[in-house]
Amino acid sequence: NEDWLCNKCGVQNFKRREKCFKCGVPKS
């Protein structure tokens, strides 16, 4: 499991996502 947490809103995103699904901030 290599899901990632958004640095802005803290929601968990799937590994394949390049941007946060909730707030749209790019993966860092």
Rank of each mutant, 00 (worst) to 15 (best):
F14L: 06
K22Y: 03
C20L: 01
L5Y: 14
K27W: 07
K8C: 04
F14A: 10
K19Q: 08
D3W: 08
P26A: 12
C20T: 06
C20Q: 01
F14P: 05
N7F: 12
C23W: 00
C23F: 03
C20E: 02
E18G: 05
V11Y: 15
K15L: 05
V11N: 13
F21R: 10
E18V: 03
E18M: 11
W4S: 06
R17E: 11
N13A: 01
V25C: 10
E2H: 09
C20G: 01
D3K: 04
K19C: 10
K8Q: 14
F14M: 09
E2D: 13
E18I: 11
D3Y: 06
V11W: 08
N1W: 02
Q12G: 10
N1R: 07
P26C: 03
C6R: 05
S28P: 15
C23L: 00
P26E: 12
N13W: 01
V25W: 08
N13S: 03
C9H: 05
N7W: 10
K8L: 08
K8D: 12
N7G: 09
Q12N: 09
N13C: 02
R16T: 15
E2I: 08
C9L: 02
P26K: 07
Q12W: 09
K19P: 06
E2S: 14
N7T: 13
K19E: 11
V11G: 09
C23M: 02
C9Y: 00
L5S: 11
G10Q: 14
V11Q: 13
C9N: 05
D3N: 11
D3M: 12
C9T: 01
K19D: 15
K19L: 08
L5E: 11
W4R: 02
K22T: 03
E2G: 07
D3S: 10
D3V: 05
K8G: 11
R16Q: 08
V25T: 14
C23P: 02
F14D: 12
N13R: 00
G24T: 05
V25G: 11
N1D: 09
R17M: 08
G24W: 01
D3H: 02
W4D: 07
C6K: 01
G10I: 12
R17K: 07
F21G: 09
G10P: 03
R17S: 12
V25Q: 12
V25M: 13
K22Q: 07
C20A: 01
G10M: 13
K22E: 02
E2A: 01
W4K: 05
K15V: 07
F21W: 13
F14Q: 11
V25F: 07
K22G: 02
E2M: 15
R16L: 05
K8A: 14
E18K: 04
N7H: 14
R16M: 01
C9E: 07
P26S: 07
F14G: 13
C9P: 06
C6A: 01
K19G: 08
F21S: 09
L5R: 07
W4H: 07
K22F: 00
F21C: 11
E2F: 09
D3R: 00
N13L: 03
C23Y: 00
C23K: 01
C23H: 02
G10S: 10
L5C: 08
K27G: 09
R16V: 05
G24M: 03
V11E: 13
C6V: 02
G10T: 15
K19N: 15
Q12P: 09
F21L: 06
W4A: 04
L5D: 15
K15S: 12
G10R: 06
W4C: 03
R17A: 14
K8I: 04
N1V: 14
K22I: 00
L5F: 14
C23S: 02
G10A: 14
P26V: 06
C6L: 02
N1C: 10
V25I: 08
P26L: 07
Q12K: 15
G10H: 15
C23V: 00
V11I: 04
K27Q: 11
C9F: 01
G24V: 01
E2Q: 12
N1F: 09
N1A: 06
R17W: 09
C6Q: 11
N1T: 09
G10D: 10
F14E: 13
N13M: 04
N1S: 07
C9I: 01
R17P: 08
D3F: 09
K15T: 11
F21Q: 10
V25P: 03
C9W: 02
Q12M: 04
K19I: 12
D3Q: 06
R16S: 14
C9V: 00
P26M: 04
K22D: 05
W4Y: 06
F14S: 07
N7D: 13
E2R: 07
G24H: 05
E2Y: 09
V11D: 02
W4G: 04
K19S: 07
F21E: 10
V11S: 14
E2N: 14
C6G: 03
R17C: 08
N7C: 06
C9G: 03
C20R: 00
P26G: 10
E18W: 00
L5V: 15
C23Q: 00
Q12T: 12
N13Q: 04
G24D: 00
C20V: 01
L5W: 03
C6T: 01
C9K: 00
V11M: 13
G24A: 06
W4Q: 13
C9Q: 03
N1I: 10
C20W: 00
W4I: 03
K19H: 09
P26D: 08
V25K: 13
K8E: 09
